[in-house]
Design a binder for these strands. Structure first.
Lengths: 164, 164
DNA sequence: ACAAAGATGTAGCCTTGGCTTCATTTCACT
DNA sequence: AGTGAAATGAAGCCAAGGCTACATCTTTGT
């Protein structure tokens, strides 16, 4: 074994002197930690999108079919099927061969959370003057990265400023 | 060839009756299109993160080293190296073996755009009452999904409401 | 000058999210 | 009831972003 423990020599970058220089946390990795969180959110994005969509489809038709899911998301059906398999592994949905997809309790709970968040983000964007169509697109990406604190701020804003 | 052209029978879901039912566009795929855009943004996220970070590091030390990049992002060095290789392929950076990484003009331009956007998003979040540390984390994810229109709205808001 | 430490490179593996192609099952309709 | 279209499944490919392990180059320090 050669390089195991992290050492530092040379012009080791302080890591606080970078990018988020407004923070004073002296621990190496304040930066890194932030990005880690973002990475986690990133991997949850797709799960959330599928879950939300499946909830919508179930509400509309009582079931969500792979083909519909795929069409709504703009992907091919094998892609949707693979994602559903993953959702199943994670315990968010159930499905039987050649049958539709259904949310489990956990899945329904997640869908509800996601839907609420989604709605708030869209309303908020419109409230600050973003055109509805653009708000719809942006919200699709933004929603996955909005923390509870930020969501609360969005919500407060919408409530306190009905028109802008 | 069997299933080639898309046909529809049975209970084909209208695709507008779902999720974003606020739009009236009758073309199949209004939904899908929105998600496609989000997917594009998703794949650009990492490029933007790296580019921005490299700009910061270059500003601080005149060069960006793989190890520093990796540490700041909280990934291992081979991961950073692979990403840099991709950035290089895309013409955003240059590098020579065992030497640092440098932004090309295109890379510097992207970094500048990203930095401006990043700053606006953070200022905006703080302006609506999100605590600074949380704003920093959320901005890291949100920034990649903010359209020009939304960014303008953010910017306007910050200017018109210095304190909240 | 040289040895050790640190930085970089290389190879290979995993997972995920895309895709195409082809096989199989269901379903709607005559 | 039977058939053909549509839906689902299964296999296999690719790129990207992670990782570990190991090899090699540079730099530091004595």
């Amino acid at each position: 074994m050669k390089n195991k423990a992290p050492r530092k020599k040379r012009a080791a970058v302080p890591a606080e002197a970078v990018a988020g220089a407004e923070q004073s946390a002296p621990d190496l990795g304040a930066e890194a930690h932030r990005f880690s969180q973002t990475r986690s959110a990133r991997s949850a994005e797709i799960l959330e999108d599928y879950t939300e969509l499946i909830a919508d489809l179930m509400e509309e038709h009582g079931e969500a079919r792979i083909t519909d899911i795929a069409r709504c998301l703009g992907v091919t059906h094998p892609t949707a099927a693979k994602a559903v398999a993953r959702l199943k592994r994670e315990g968010l949905v159930t499905s039987r061969p050649y049958r539709g997809v259904f949310l489990t309790e956990a899945g329904a709970a997640m869908a509800e959370r996601v839907r609420v968040r989604h709605r708030i983000v869209i309303e908020f964007l419109k409230a600050i003057g973003v055109p509805a169509e653009i708000a719809a697109v942006d919200a699709e990406g933004i929603e996955h990265y909005v923390s509870d604190a930020t969501l609360a701020a969005f919500s407060d804003f919408v409530r306190s400023a009905p028109e802008v």
